[in-house]
Amino acid sequence: MKYLTFAARLFIGGLFVYASIHKITDPAQFAVSIRNYMILPPEWSHLVALALPWVEIGAGAFLILGIQTKPSALLTTGMLAVFLVAIARAYATGLDIDCGCFSSAAASHGRVDIYHLVRDSLILLVSLFVLLADRGDFCISGLFSLRGRPV
């Protein structure tokens, strides 16, 4: 079980690190993606576009390295839940936008559809699994903890 949890942790961590890279390199484009969802007030889009990718890369890196795994898994699960709601809302209201998940809005041409909903739901389940099942195996913090107790 611990190997499965470890694999799931690496998967979610790697996915978040990968997804954050294009957002960090082109925050203006990511801000456009955020505005397209028409959920947040447009004025907030830049602030979210600057902060969110770093939370993604931070939480993802922590999951990979096994630092603060529970809080990091809680963050990834929370973010995925928010993304799922946003995609579902865009799909339900017929917004013709791309999801902006793994590539910039300008680079991708596919509009949000049922595929994105299913994909995000599955990733959310894996992240939830990590949050609930992780017992701190294969954690850097466990290796160096004086108490020898995983985080």
């Binding site: 390199t25 082109d26 925050p27 902060a51 939370v55 603060q68 809680l74």
Partner: peptide, 28 residues
């Protein structure tokens, strides 16, 4: 702790924007 991580990395992202070549205004 999740909240602390959220605040930490958000601050990093918002601060690094000041030195980024692709900097954007904090408020759109």
């Amino acid at each position: 702790r999740a909240m602390a991580i959220l605040l930490l990395w958000s601050s990093v992202g918002i601060s690094l924007n000041l030195f980024s070549a692709n900097a954007i205004p904090w408020v759109y």
